[in-house]
Design a protein around this nucleic acid. Structure first.
Length: 496
RNA sequence: GGUCGGGUGGCCGAGUGGCUAGGCUCAGCUCUGCAAAAGCUGCUACAGCGGUUCGAAUCCGCUCUCGACCUCCA
């Protein structure tokens, strides 16, 4: 595959990626609701899209990557009146200002994204910062006849949309007939909504609701789906290239986003919809309520009831890379351990590769092997970002690097291989060498332990009255800047 | 119940009609004073049953089974 193909959820097949306005690419990803610590499943999604973002940049596209922060509107219960906002609920629980909650968990989210070495998006808009845009969108939807008002709450009229745009449901594979059939059965249970698939785009706040704004319909707040429509339209236009998110957002969130955009702008917003699959823990869905859940910090510290040891952020990220983003990923001890070792081996391999010098008499076979690697790796990434395949290719060429065969390559080809490895590992996958990064910390530890050993050996020499050896140690250490000081209680050292 | 997607060797996990990824584990060998690293070799699998085909993990049908979504979730 010479050109990038992506799996488009809209048509359930891989399609050639053609931006609307090359070389520019507009990309929108649904960000977190900042009412709690970010969890591992969130991390998977954002790491996946980070790699997609990085790869698009690598291909030379000028990408505007928008990822929102949901700080209002995401409800705990149903969208009917009386439902509580997640942020509101947490604020009450922690006895804090809602914006205090928002700030706290936004900070934590950013820290975790940094820990996992993801790039910040181009724009990270918040829902509360775009009330005006959202209100304007509600107005537009009302004006176009795709919404109705009931008791100060504005509902999107899905039945009306389906009548004019039968594609509603296409993204999530829902059949319009079934949605309608369902509505007949359930209609009697509905209070303010005309149709069960209708959803609130502006919600009248009950009196003790903390976050609320004045609008022409009521003192209230925007519906959850609305912010993404409003902000993607504002920053990427009515139609843009890529829209991403977790698979669980496909319905109803993304379906309703499309509905809102059609209702307000007359067209579906994104041309390619990408969805990342879910992460499981020991074969079961991660869920806070039944305890089958590990937080990122708990994974990295080892302080959890699931795994026998801590696993580093890069080990975890490597595990993500070993699985395609559209497959479910089962987080297990064996998987983490395997990924951790493979990651360390790959980092070592890269160092080995860097130290190889080109041969004076190049061997065409070595050159050919490198060409094949570069070609296949590009093909793998172009095939819907197949990172497991790229890693597999790297490990396939690993023996040829380690046994010296690749050293027979020409300077040009060897350089190409080094560049390719560097680009994949660091620029596209966003890995880094943890042992190297931690080395400053570790070096002082290492120095102390090493000198401790040397001093013990010197003490042994002195005990044997082998002063030639003990002086050799002392003088040599002094010449490299370490002063030994003997005392009654033993020897100590210091840097001079 | 409806919709959708899976079931691959000890474990994890790519792969969509022939050329039987890769990682980890395990066993053995080479190298090596010992160890580590590295290299090499072995364990050669596609849930089951039928069908299509010269040929299927890959296509079709049925069965079993797991999961996701349908309700807040990345």
């Amino acid at each position: 595959m010479q050109h990038l193909h992506v799996f488009n959820s809209l048509n359930r097949q891989k399609e050639l990626f053609e931006p609307l306005f090359p070389p520019r690419v507009g990309m929108y990803v649904c960000g977190p609701t900042v009412y709690n610590d970010v969890h591992l499943g969130n991390c998977r999604t954002f790491v996946s899209f980070d790699i997609i973002y990085r790869y698009l940049l690598h291909l030379g596209y000028k990408v505007r990557y928008v990822r929102n922060i949901t700080d209002v509107g995401h409800l705990v219960g149903d969208t009917d009146e009386g439902a509580e906002s997640k942020v509101d609920k947490q604020a009450r629980l922690e006895q804090k200002e809602p914006m205090e909650i928002v700030q706290h968990y936004t900070n934590g989210f950013h820290q975790m994204m940094q820990t996992l070495r993801t790039l910040p998006p181009s724009i990270e808009p918040t829902a509360t910062g775009h009330l005006l845009e959202q209100i304007e969108m509600v107005q537009a939807i009302l004006k176009n006849g795709y919404a109705y008002i009931n008791n100060g709450t504005v509902y999107f009229d899905t039945a009306k949309l389906i009548a004019n745009f039968p594609d509603y449901g296409k993204l999530s594979g829902k059949k319009v007939d079934e949605l309608i059939a369902e509505s007949r059965d359930n209609l009697k249970h509905q209070s303010d909504k005309r149709h069960p698939t209708d959803f609130a785009i502006w919600i009248k706040a009950d009196p003790n609701h903390l976050m609320k704004w004045q609008s022409e319909w009521s003192l209230g707040f925007p519906g959850w789906h609305l912010e993404c429509s409003a902000m993607s339209t504002k920053y990427l236009g009515k139609e843009f290239d890529l829209h991403g998110g977790g698979m669980d957002l496909q319905f109803p969130h993304h379906e309703n986003e499309i509905a809102q955009n059609i209702g307000a702008c007359g067209n579906s917003p994104a041309r390619y919809w990408l969805h990342t699959n879910m992460m499981l823990l020991n074969g079961r869905k991660m869920s806070k309520s039944d305890g089958n859940n590990v937080m990122p910090k708990e994974l990295f510290s080892g302080n959890n009831g699931f795994f026998s040891q801590p696993y580093s952020p890069m080990s975890f990220k490597f595990l993500l890379l070993q699985t395609h983003y559209r497959s479910t990923l089962d987080l297990t001890e064996g998987g983490l351990e395997s990924a951790s070792k493979a990651y360390q081996r790959l980092m070592k391999l890269y160092q080995t590769l860097l130290n190889i010098s080109p041969a004076a008499q190049p061997d065409a076979a070595a050159d050919a092997e490198i060409s094949l690697f570069v070609k296949k790796a590009a093909e793998a990434m172009n095939d819907d970002f197949n990172t497991p395949e790229v890693l597999s290719l790297m490990f396939q060429i690993a023996p040829r690097i380690n046994d010296g065969f690749i050293a027979k390559a020409s300077a040009q080809q060897l350089d190409a291989l080094k560049t390719s490895f560097r680009q994949f590992l660091f620029d596209i996958f966003g890995l880094y060498d943890e042992t190297e990064a931690d080395s400053q910390h570790q070096d002082s530890h290492l120095l102390a332990a090493t000198l401790d050993l040397i001093l013990k050996m010197r003490a042994g020499a002195r005990a044997r009255k082998d002063f030639a050896t003990s002086d050799l140690i002392r003088d040599n250490l002094l010449s490299i800047g370490i002063q030994i000081k003997d005392s009654k209680t033993g020897a100590t050292w210091e840097k001079i």
